[in-house]
């Protein structure tokens, strides 16, 4: 179980014409097994925050701790191991490899890292309601099914934190809600910490806590009015 803590987190970069200050001193604590939504308009810095917390972006100032470990102090192999075992990533674009089958896509995290905890692909596909699609090509699945395959892949290493970047952005409303219900179930039944980045308010409302970003800063941090539905 890993909690996340950022202290005075800044991110600056040059887009070729000017300096961008994407994150401006973010202080944020995410408790283990919490379901948090980070909302904001496009360019507010929410994806940048997620990338830094997930160890995908290491060019920042300030402090980021995951499970009590300062990310800045970790080497390449340690950070890779953290991404492999502690985090599961779910993206808006799914990022499924079409030359592999659904089952092979789910197994991808098993290619990297050390000892394999066993093949959980079939079990995970069953868990996300895709038990009969293991041998199929991802290209034959609907958007919602592809996102569920991506979630199964994110869960392959049994991570304690799921980092989701606009996971419903490419899905219709009903399918998006189904995916969110899946996140809710994982959070409740398996104590998986979920950090969900979205620009859609009704999606954010599904989380138990909503952090709102604007221009790289936290403008509000409150419990959701509408608790997660069973």
């Amino acid at each position: 179980m890993s909690g996340i803590e950022t202290t005075d987190l800044h991110k600056r970069y040059d887009d070729g014409t000017r300096q961008i200050h994407a994150l401006r001193g973010i202080d944020l604590v995410v408790d283990p097994a919490e379901f948090i939504a980070v909302v904001g308009t496009s360019g507010s810095g929410k994806t940048t925050l997620l990338n830094i917390v997930g160890g995908l972006d290491r060019d920042y100032s300030g402090r980021v701790e995951v499970g009590g470990r300062d990310l800045e102090q970790l080497g390449e192999s340690e950070i890779a191991d953290l991404r492999n075992r502690t985090f599961g990533f779910v993206f808006q674009q799914f990022h499924l490899l079409e030359h592999l089958t659904v089952e092979e896509n789910v197994r991808l995290p098993g290619f990297f890292g050390g000892d394999d905890a066993g093949d959980r692909a079939e079990q995970l596909l069953e868990q996300v309601g895709l038990e009969d699609t293991g041998a199929a090509s991802p290209a034959r699945l609907s958007g919602g099914q592809q996102q569920r395959v991506a979630i199964a892949r994110a869960l392959y290493r049994n991570p304690s934190v799921l980092l989701c970047d606009e996971p419903t952005g490419n899905l219709d409303r009903r399918t998006g809600l189904e995916v969110l219900e899946l996140f809710g179930r994982l959070n409740r039944e398996h104590d998986v910490t979920i950090v969900l980045v979205t620009h859609e308010e009704h999606i954010a409302d599904m989380a138990e806590r909503i952090v709102r970003l604007e221009a790289g800063g936290v403008v509000s941090d409150k419990r959701s009015d509408e608790p997660i539905r069973d």
Binding site: L56, S77, D81, Q93, L97, P109, F112
Partner: peptide, 16 residues
């Protein structure tokens, strides 16, 4: 690029 980014996200090191 996307595939390489994904591999990094799921635990591949630059050396791998």
């Amino acid at each position: 690029r996307g595939e390489i980014g994904l591999m990094r996200a799921i635990g591949a090191t630059p050396a791998e």
